[in-house]
Amino acid sequence: MNKNLSKYFPLFVLPTLAAFAAAFIVPFAMGLYLSFCKFTTVGNAEFTGFANYARIFSNSDFTNALWFTVKFTAVSIITVNIFAFCLALLLTKGIKGTNVFRTIFFMPNLIGGIVLGYIWNLIINGVLAGFGVDITYKAEYGFWGLVILTNWQMIGYMMVIYIAGLQNIPKELIQAAYIDGATGRQALFKITIPMVMPSVTICTFLTLTNAFKLFDQNLALTAGAPARQTSMLALDIYNTFYGRVGWQGVGQAKAVIFFLIVALIAFIQLRLTGQREERA
């Protein structure tokens, strides 16, 4: 079969591979190289070693964005997962209309980031108008605006994963606990929560990567205002690339660091959840 198959390589693999090379492989390799160059267009790149990486820290934009992103991600992980887990508990109690609620809670997840950002821009500014200010008045407003938006977007999603996890717990376990005289709270903390730990891990990492890479929502909700104080990493990289001539190399160097952080998170996740998906 293998010999016979190989002459079909151009038909089966080449279209995808050609597109993949143009959209990913070549740009990735170029990006890596350009992070060590000074350039304003790809054509005039000049090798400068680690100069771009050093220049990242010549102002505090990147470290501010990193700190903002880390704070935002940490708060989002906690809030999204607590709300999602509680909703999942409520929706596995066998209440009537469970499916309708599930449909409603999941829906925001399907709406695109730009649209989400402007929906919440309207709502939050509507509320703040009562106090005579808007979301760009203070960085805290933008921060909590993003947290609320992210919760609205991701809770339903994580909830569905938790529901699946909860439904996998054998009912005998809980019933046995009740027969042995456990209270509801004991059953929850001693049985239910330990049994859904795999779902907790999945949801934590999903929230982590999604929150960490947030771009569209950030752009539409605050665009970094006031004074770049609410810029997350992805937006800061974008602004470095396209906002300042001569800083493209620095933008690319920031992108490489961003990539390394995201790859590290993915690597840790893979180690924690087991390598069962990695077998080729």
Binding site: S6, P27, G31, K213, A255, F258, V262, A266
Partner: peptide
């Protein structure tokens, strides 16, 4: 085949690369 395994590894690798890493050079290419 080894070639296909290599291609497959590249595909899976691409999943963890954030868009910002390639956006500038991809636009160029």
């Amino acid at each position: 085949s080894p070639l296909c395994k290599g291609i497959y590894s590249l595909f899976t690798f691409s999943m963890i690369v954030p868009f910002q890493m390639v956006m500038y050079t991809m636009t160029y290419v």
